[in-house]
Every structure is written in C-alpha cells, then in structure tokens.
Design a binder for these strands. Structure first.
Lengths: 229, 229
DNA sequence: AGCCTGAGTTTGGTATACAAAACGTTCCGG
DNA sequence: CCGGAACGTTTTGTATACCAAACTCAGGCT
C-alpha cells in the first residue's frame, strides 16, 4: 500500500533522490567537458527548464559549484563559468604541494602504525590494467583516485574535506590541458606507493612533492593559449 | 508583505540581497556562542520563523554552514549542530600547520619581492592597544585577523579560500576552550611579523610552525571535558 | 553627441502547496 | 508483558506562482 505512483509523469522514470545533486553533476560535466565554456552565463530558469526541475535544485547546485570553484556569482547578475587564469593554475599546484605532500607523509605514518593500505596498491594495479587496455578515461580516473586514496589514508578528515575542492579543479584543469605521459606518471605512483606502504614518511613526502611539481609545467604548456592573463 | 527583519538595527536603508548571509551569520553566532549546543537540530521552519525569512535563505545558510563544518545534514532528516571530537581538534591543528606555515613562508617571499605588508604591523599594533585596554573580544578578533592577513599576504587566492573554513572552525573551538595568555601569543606574533616583513621565508615558516603548535595543548586541555571520543 | 528613460530580462526573495521519508505512538496479537 | 505492524505527525525536498529590485539595452530628448 505505500505508493506505486501511477501517474507522476513530471519526471522521467528514473525515480531518484537529490535533484540538486543531479543538476550539480550534470552542469559540472558540462563545464569540465568544455560544453559550458569559460564565461558562459548559467541562467537559473534556463537550467531548470533544460533539466526539467524547478529553480530550487538549480540554485543549490550553482551554490555548490561556486564553492567548488567552477562558477562565479555576482549579486543580482547571476552565475558565470569561471575564467581560469595562469595564477589559478599555479595557485592550485602550490596548494596541492602543501596538502598532498602532507597527506602522503601522514599516510605513510598511518600505514607504519598498522592502518591497511592495500587499496592503494589495488588502484595502482587497476591503473596498470587500464593503461595496457588503452582505456584512457579510466587511466585518468584511476590516477585521480590514487591521489584521493592517499589523502584518505592520511586519516585526517578535515584534510579530506579541504582537498575535495582541489580535486574538482584538477579534473577541470587536467581535462583542458593535455596530460603528460601516463607511463611516466605511473612510475612515480609506483615509487610513491612503495614508500607509503613501507611506512617511509619522509621519502613519501619528497616523492609526492616531486611528482606533483613534475605535473606543473606540462599543464601550463598545455593550457598556454587558453588562459587569461 | 516582505517585512524587514528586526534582528539588528543596521538592517534598514541600503540593505538587500543578504537574507541568506544574515541567517548564516546569526546561526553561526548562535553556534559559536554555545546557544545552539552540539547535537541541536536546526529545523528549517523553526529558523525561518525565528528570523522572519522564508525557508530558501535558511536552506542556503544551512548549506553553507555544512560546508564550513558547523553542522551536519542527513538526507530527509535535516541538519544538526556538529559534535566536536578530539580528532576534529587535532585534525584542525594539523591542517593549520600545513597551510598556515606555507602561507607564512609565501608571505615573506611576497614581501621580499616588494609586496606591501604594513597591514600586518597595523594589526599587531591594534592588538597591543586592545590588550592594554583590556578589550578581550578585540584581542581575540585581532589575533584571528593577524593570522588571516598572513594568508592574504601569501597572494595565493586558492589558499585564502581553502583556509576560510578553518578559520570558522578555529573561532568555534577557541571560543569553547579558554585560550592561553594573550601576552605570550602576542610575543610570538611580533617575532613572526618581523620575520615576514624582513622577508625571511624559512624563519617565518618555523616561527609560524611553533606558534601554531604551541596553541594545540592549551586548547586540548581547555576542551578536555566537553569533547566526544 | 551625450545623457536620460523606460521596457524587457534576470535574479533574489516570498508564499503556498504537496509528496515522500523519517519519527512516534498506538494498538494488536502472541 | 513484549514485539512489531499500522497509523498519524513532522519535516524535508520539490514545484509553482508571484513580486520587487536591478541590470541591459534600445530609443528618445535636450
């Protein structure tokens, strides 16, 4: 007797919770895929009609997109997709150097104290497989997951939260730039993984540092033409 | 009728488009002041009636409070004031050590490259005055502003954003704990300020490190009884 | 030409309504 | 007496409609 909603045709069959979450994901996909170019206005009514939801979920989604650094909103003038500048990219790499190296060190400490770290090795193996199979999308996804897993292993929940917006921006920026060789990256991941699982905190720290720093130049070159001053 | 909220006197006049922001500030005040105890449910309707606004600004405020770490929301069950645990405090200090020491180093670099840093000295002087006058609230506020100014001087906008939620939590946690001597803190601030204005990056780094670390134990002691496991 | 003005557009905000999920309470049967 | 199902209540999540302020842009006035 609960429901069997017979005629609620407003939404396509997919009964789902969290309209706002869906709108967030859809718009985010649009941004990182370049469908919504930098500077594009995001009109609430437009999006609500496009996705067949009301304005409330759209507002919530836009609010989250702003907090995650994808859009900028101006009072009474709405939201536009953010324009990335050179300093945005450099700032991102600097903060990553700060937080992710700390995470790597702490992850090694945690593992040395008995925390389980197989998940890291598993992600690495899955990445190897994806490279061999030529599934480029999965390679990128698993590489990001590897970095996220290190942060998770650090055991610092605030750190996990603080890094989340960075990963969103990374996905965007790395998507715009053409990434450097997956093979080279993987070698660095392997070394880093070994250091963490071996509990070598300072080694993990410096490997993470150089791995992140090595990513900066290729990204800057890849974005050379498309960035604002 | 849209009625102007009678919360504070400064509302009338050129005030607009700030309902959500005001609700955010008011609820935040309630939380850091201990009026809303940890675990208290925050009902949308309740708050909207209390502050004479509709539910939309309340929802927006709650969303921001969640992102800043003050409340936790559960799907279909609403928001409650977060319960602070021992590890929350330790996590906060660890991430502060990570980000604020980096900010201090970068601020020194920026100053060495010609960025203006008088604002830091001014905050220090204002703090001295506040201590001499016994204006404890101002002392705390200016101390926080000093830390924020260092981050601002780093010139890294992403860092500024990333640190913002930390400062919110700090205000909460430091408010619950009884702080250590303002005099001691000020001496450390003076040293740190000198290092930054002198452009001594590594000195600024290590001074910031020890200053932050010295704050941990007193806070943990001050909160000893009131924290969850 | 330059400035002002007014219509259209868009956002920010409010009120109201309703469905669905969680919560509480009661009531029934074992 | 107790466990669990049925029911009603509460609260969130969403939709819809509407209003006011402000920004945009075109056109008209001095």
């Amino acid at each position: 007797m609960p429901m069997t909603t017979p005629v609620t045709g407003t939404l396509n069959g997919r009964d789902d919770e969290a309209r706002a979450e869906q709108v967030y994901q859809l718009v985010l996909e649009g941004i990182v895929a370049g469908e919504y170019a930098q500077g594009t206005r995001l009109r609430e009514r437009e999006l609500s009609e496009l996705y067949s939801v009301s304005r409330i979920p759209v507002r919530e989604a836009i609010q989250r997109l702003e907090q995650d650094g994808f859009v900028e909103t101006f009072p009474r003038r709405g939201a536009v997709v953010r324009r990335l500048s050179l300093s945005d990219v450099n700032d991102l790499f600097d903060v990553r150097l700060c937080l992710e190296t700390f995470a790597a060190r702490m992850a090694a400490v945690q593992v040395a104290q008995g925390a389980p770290g197989e998940s890291l090795q598993e992600l690495l193996d899955a990445g190897r497989q994806a490279i061999d199979d030529g599934r480029t999308d999965d390679v990128v996804r698993l590489s990001a997951a590897f970095h996220a897993e290190i942060v998770r292993l650090s055991g610092n929940r605030l750190l996990i939260e603080s890094v989340k917006p960075l990963f969103g921006r990374m996905r965007w920026i790395f998507g715009l730039a053409h990434n450097r060789s997956n093979e080279l990256q993987r070698d660095e991941h392997v070394e880093l993984c070994k250091a963490i699982l071996g509990g070598h905190a300072e080694l993990a720290y410096s490997l993470a540092y150089s791995h992140i720093e090595l990513g900066r130049e290729p990204v800057l070159r890849g974005l050379a033409g498309t960035l604002e001053p």
